[in-house]
């Protein structure tokens, strides 16, 4: 299948990516050919086969929900682009 420009824009929006016009065109072409090509999976007979999400078919192990002391707040926040008064800053969300 060939991905239309509108479909690509929708995927980009879902992925929180904004694409330049040149980027869009080259991605649309390569993604179309990838999707087309992985479509061959649909020819595989899979009747009665359960999807495999984990290579050993194990469920994720749960742990007790107990608080642990991590690094201090400053260390954990040191990589944030903008912060103030011990909080992460984001652009204004509510008017």
């Amino acid at each position: 299948m060939s991905l239309s420009q509108d479909e690509l824009i929708k995927l980009a929006k879902l992925s929180r990516l904004s694409l330049s016009p040149q980027e869009s065109e080259s991605l649309r072409e390569s993604i179309s050919s990838i999707i087309d090509w992985v479509g061959q999976l649909q020819q595989a007979p899979v009747e009665g086969i359960e999807p495999m999400a984990h290579p050993h078919d194990q469920a994720l192990r749960l742990r007790e929900d107990e608080p642990v002391q991590l690094e201090d707040r400053e260390v954990l926040m040191a990589n944030a682009g903008e912060r103030a008064a011990g909080f992460f800053l984001v652009p204004k969300v509510l008017d």
Binding site: V38, L41, V46, P51, P55
Partner: peptide
């Protein structure tokens, strides 16, 4: 696509 790939994954295993 996704579930089908996971089914094929099991066949490969």
């Amino acid at each position: 696509y996704y579930l089908q790939a996971q089914r094929v994954r099991r066949l490969i295993a």
